[in-house]
């Protein structure tokens, strides 16, 4: 980087530090800073500890934090892309990687690609691809699109974005905020959706319980599959929806009319609410299906 740009960046960082826009020592010492294009692609790796991203309106990347013992920290530019690496140096001991706790301020329009083993990932106001083997993921704020996966960690999304694709294994998956299209699944973890503006959703679990308490838009299509977990659909009492609920061997409870669980062999229920503008298709193998109505003046149910 040309020297005059470094000087300018340094001035910017100091000024931001003075203004409090960039958190101070609570976030650890300043590790690195770079001027970047606003749409920079950033690849990040931190095995253990935590890594937090904050979207901001500056065309630069600033990283603060504490680097673990025997961990090499690197912020490098590779053409138009950037790498942010906290990598354990190999000493042959086979010891678990020591934790590094990093906070990175990145342009709001940047495209993140983040991977950790056990480090928790947090992102606010920036989107991209986020993956952790066992760490927890929490994504908030506005973003264009988000892909988030964890094998055993929990996934908590409270976002306003066009499209979300989220996968969890045994951990919990929560989606809130305002999302137009959602593709969500867990293996055995519970899955809860309480989002608005939903136009398309595909939601699936194998054994986890699914709770859908969201406001679908007119013409929304929501498809839910669960093998043996329960599926609870909570709609506002002014909902306009057509529902097709099928369970091969589970019960179907219709909270709209207060009717009791369906007795075999009838395990299908079709309903039209209002003008039937949105469409819900729910299917389970043995998991029970529960349909509930929520009074519109009761506030939106919080995720339990």
């Amino acid at each position: 980087m040309p020297g005059d740009r470094r000087l300018l960046l340094g001035v910017v960082v100091l000024a931001l530090g003075a203004s409090g826009a960039v958190q101070g020592p609570a976030d650890g010492r300043l590790l690195a800073g770079r001027a970047v294009r606003p749409t920079v692609a950033i690849k990040a790796w931190n095995a253990a500890g935590s890594i937090r991203f904050v979207g901001w309106s500056k065309d630069s990347v600033v990283v603060r934090g504490e680097v673990g013992r025997n961990v090499r920290f690197l912020l490098s530019q590779d053409g138009d892309a950037m790498k942010l690496i906290a990598e354990q140096e190999r000493d042959g001991s086979g010891a678990s990687p020591s934790a590094s706790h990093l906070v990175a301020w990145v342009p709001r329009q940047s495209a993140l690609s983040v991977k950790t083993v056990s480090a928790d990932i947090t992102a606010d106001g920036v989107g991209g691809w986020f993956y952790s083997v066992s760490g927890n993921l929490r994504i908030t704020g506005s973003a264009r699109s988000i892909e988030a996966e964890t094998m055993t960690g929990n996934l908590d999304l409270d976002v306003a974005c066009l499209w979300v694709r989220a996968r969890a294994g045994s951990g919990r998956l929560d989606l809130r905020g305002a999302t137009e299209a959602a593709d969500l699944s867990t293996i055995s973890g519970d899955l809860r959706v309480a989002t608005s503006s939903l136009l398309r959703a595909q939601i699936a679990s194998v054994t986890g319980d699914i709770r859908f308490a969201a406001t679908p838009t007119a013409a929304a299509i929501v498809d839910v599959s669960d093998h043996s977990g329960s599926v609870e659909v909570v709609l506002p009492d002014n909902a306009s929806a057509e529902l097709a609920l099928t369970s091969i061997a589970g019960s179907i409870e219709n909270g709209v009319t207060g009717s009791s669980a369906m007795a075999p062999p009838s395990r299908s229920l079709n309903l039209r609410l209002g003008r039937g503008e949105s469409r819900f298709i729910v299917r389970t193998f043995t998991g029970p299906i529960r349909l509930k109505m929520q009074p519109t003046n009761a506030g939106w149910p919080e995720l339990r």
Partner: peptide, 8 residues
């Protein structure tokens, strides 16, 4: 969807 009306 094979639906039959069930209006609130």
């Amino acid at each position: 969807l094979w639906l039959r009306p069930a209006r609130l």
